[in-house]
Lab assay of single mutants.
Amino acid sequence: EQLARLKREFNENRYLTERRRQQLSSELGLNEAQIKIWFQNERA
Protein backbone atom coordinates (compact mmCIF):
# COMPACT_ATOMS: atom_id res chain seq x y z
CA GLU A 1 0.00 0.00 0.00
CA GLN A 2 2.81 2.43 0.84
CA LEU A 3 4.55 1.73 -2.44
CA ALA A 4 1.35 2.15 -4.45
CA ARG A 5 0.68 5.47 -2.72
CA LEU A 6 4.21 6.72 -3.37
CA LYS A 7 3.94 5.76 -7.04
CA ARG A 8 0.62 7.61 -7.37
CA GLU A 9 2.15 10.70 -5.80
CA PHE A 10 5.18 10.44 -8.08
CA ASN A 11 2.97 10.18 -11.16
CA GLU A 12 1.16 13.37 -10.13
CA ASN A 13 4.29 15.30 -9.23
CA ARG A 14 7.94 14.27 -9.51
CA TYR A 15 8.96 16.76 -6.81
CA LEU A 16 7.41 17.13 -3.35
CA THR A 17 7.09 20.27 -1.31
CA GLU A 18 8.27 20.05 2.27
CA ARG A 19 4.65 20.26 3.45
CA ARG A 20 3.53 17.43 1.14
CA ARG A 21 6.46 15.29 2.28
CA GLN A 22 5.41 15.88 5.90
CA GLN A 23 1.82 14.90 5.08
CA LEU A 24 2.88 11.70 3.35
CA SER A 25 5.23 10.88 6.20
CA SER A 26 2.36 11.12 8.66
CA GLU A 27 -0.13 9.25 6.48
CA LEU A 28 2.20 6.40 5.50
CA GLY A 29 4.10 5.98 8.74
CA LEU A 30 7.46 6.60 7.07
CA ASN A 31 9.96 9.25 8.03
CA GLU A 32 10.51 12.22 5.74
CA ALA A 33 14.02 11.12 4.79
CA GLN A 34 12.70 7.78 3.52
CA ILE A 35 10.17 9.55 1.30
CA LYS A 36 12.74 12.06 0.07
CA ILE A 37 15.20 9.30 -0.86
CA TRP A 38 12.47 7.25 -2.57
CA PHE A 39 11.56 10.22 -4.77
CA GLN A 40 15.23 10.89 -5.56
CA ASN A 41 15.71 7.27 -6.56
CA GLU A 42 12.60 7.27 -8.76
CA ARG A 43 13.81 10.38 -10.59
CA ALA A 44 17.23 8.82 -11.25
Rank of each mutant, 00 (worst) to 15 (best):
residue 40 Q to D: 15
residue 38 W to T: 00
residue 38 W to S: 03
residue 21 R to L: 15
residue 10 F to Y: 08
residue 34 Q to H: 09
residue 42 E to A: 12
residue 36 K to D: 15
residue 25 S to Q: 06
residue 9 E to D: 02
residue 44 A to W: 09
residue 15 Y to T: 11
residue 31 N to H: 10
residue 32 E to A: 08
residue 28 L to C: 05
residue 19 R to W: 08
residue 9 E to F: 06
residue 15 Y to K: 10
residue 30 L to W: 11
residue 8 R to N: 08
residue 40 Q to E: 15
residue 22 Q to L: 11
residue 6 L to V: 04
residue 13 N to D: 10
residue 14 R to N: 12
residue 12 E to S: 04
residue 12 E to Q: 10
residue 42 E to R: 03
residue 23 Q to I: 13
residue 16 L to E: 09
residue 39 F to M: 07
residue 30 L to Q: 01
residue 37 I to Q: 14
residue 10 F to H: 01
residue 39 F to K: 00
residue 9 E to M: 05
residue 34 Q to W: 15
residue 23 Q to Y: 10
residue 28 L to E: 01
residue 19 R to Y: 10
residue 32 E to F: 03
residue 18 E to K: 15
residue 5 R to T: 05
residue 14 R to M: 10
residue 42 E to N: 05
residue 15 Y to W: 12
residue 11 N to E: 14
residue 30 L to Y: 03
residue 29 G to F: 03
residue 38 W to E: 03
residue 24 L to E: 02
residue 42 E to W: 13
residue 34 Q to R: 04
residue 32 E to C: 05
residue 38 W to F: 12
residue 13 N to Y: 06
residue 6 L to W: 00
residue 16 L to Y: 01
residue 17 T to Y: 02
residue 34 Q to N: 06
residue 37 I to L: 10
residue 2 Q to W: 11
residue 35 I to F: 01
residue 24 L to Y: 01
residue 5 R to W: 03
residue 19 R to T: 14
residue 1 E to Q: 08
residue 12 E to R: 09
residue 12 E to H: 07
residue 11 N to S: 13
residue 4 A to Q: 10
residue 5 R to N: 05
residue 43 R to I: 14
residue 32 E to V: 09
residue 31 N to G: 12
residue 2 Q to F: 07
residue 30 L to I: 12
residue 8 R to M: 12
residue 4 A to G: 06
residue 19 R to A: 15
residue 41 N to D: 09
residue 13 N to I: 04
residue 3 L to Q: 07
residue 12 E to P: 00
residue 42 E to P: 00
residue 42 E to T: 05
residue 6 L to F: 00
residue 13 N to K: 05
residue 1 E to H: 07
residue 21 R to Q: 14
residue 41 N to L: 11
residue 26 S to K: 15
residue 17 T to M: 04
residue 14 R to H: 11
residue 18 E to L: 07
residue 42 E to I: 05
residue 37 I to N: 12
residue 6 L to Y: 00
residue 9 E to K: 03
residue 9 E to S: 04
residue 32 E to G: 05
residue 14 R to P: 15
residue 33 A to R: 08
residue 44 A to E: 13
residue 11 N to D: 13
residue 42 E to Q: 11
residue 26 S to R: 15
residue 18 E to G: 09
residue 5 R to E: 08
residue 4 A to F: 00
residue 39 F to Y: 06
residue 22 Q to A: 13
residue 44 A to S: 09
residue 23 Q to W: 10
residue 23 Q to H: 10
residue 9 E to H: 05
residue 12 E to A: 07
residue 23 Q to K: 11
residue 21 R to Y: 12
residue 9 E to Y: 06
residue 29 G to M: 07
residue 40 Q to A: 12
residue 33 A to H: 12
residue 35 I to G: 00
residue 34 Q to G: 01
residue 31 N to P: 15
residue 31 N to A: 13
residue 19 R to Q: 15
residue 37 I to G: 07
residue 23 Q to A: 11
residue 3 L to T: 09
residue 14 R to A: 12
residue 29 G to Y: 01
residue 6 L to I: 04
residue 28 L to H: 01
residue 10 F to A: 02
residue 2 Q to K: 08
residue 32 E to R: 03
residue 29 G to C: 05
residue 16 L to N: 04
residue 3 L to D: 06
residue 19 R to E: 15
residue 7 K to A: 09
residue 8 R to W: 09
residue 1 E to K: 06
residue 13 N to G: 06
residue 39 F to G: 00
residue 25 S to V: 09
residue 37 I to E: 14
residue 3 L to W: 04
residue 2 Q to V: 14
residue 27 E to P: 01
residue 36 K to Y: 11
residue 17 T to D: 14
residue 1 E to A: 07
residue 12 E to F: 05
residue 44 A to P: 03
residue 2 Q to A: 12
residue 31 N to K: 08
residue 13 N to A: 01
residue 21 R to T: 15
residue 35 I to R: 00
residue 33 A to Q: 13
residue 13 N to S: 07
residue 40 Q to Y: 06
residue 22 Q to P: 03
residue 13 N to R: 06
residue 25 S to R: 03
residue 39 F to E: 05
residue 34 Q to S: 10
residue 1 E to I: 07
residue 26 S to V: 15
residue 13 N to V: 04
residue 22 Q to K: 14
residue 7 K to N: 05
residue 31 N to W: 07
residue 11 N to T: 09
residue 33 A to L: 13
residue 23 Q to P: 00
residue 27 E to A: 06
residue 7 K to W: 06
residue 10 F to V: 03
residue 38 W to G: 02
residue 37 I to T: 09
residue 40 Q to I: 10
residue 14 R to E: 11
residue 29 G to Q: 07
residue 39 F to T: 00
residue 6 L to H: 00
residue 41 N to A: 10
residue 41 N to C: 14
residue 40 Q to R: 06
residue 39 F to V: 00
residue 10 F to I: 03
residue 28 L to A: 01
residue 43 R to H: 10
residue 18 E to D: 14
residue 15 Y to E: 12
residue 2 Q to Y: 06
residue 2 Q to M: 11
residue 1 E to W: 12
residue 33 A to V: 13
residue 43 R to V: 11
residue 6 L to E: 02
residue 8 R to V: 11
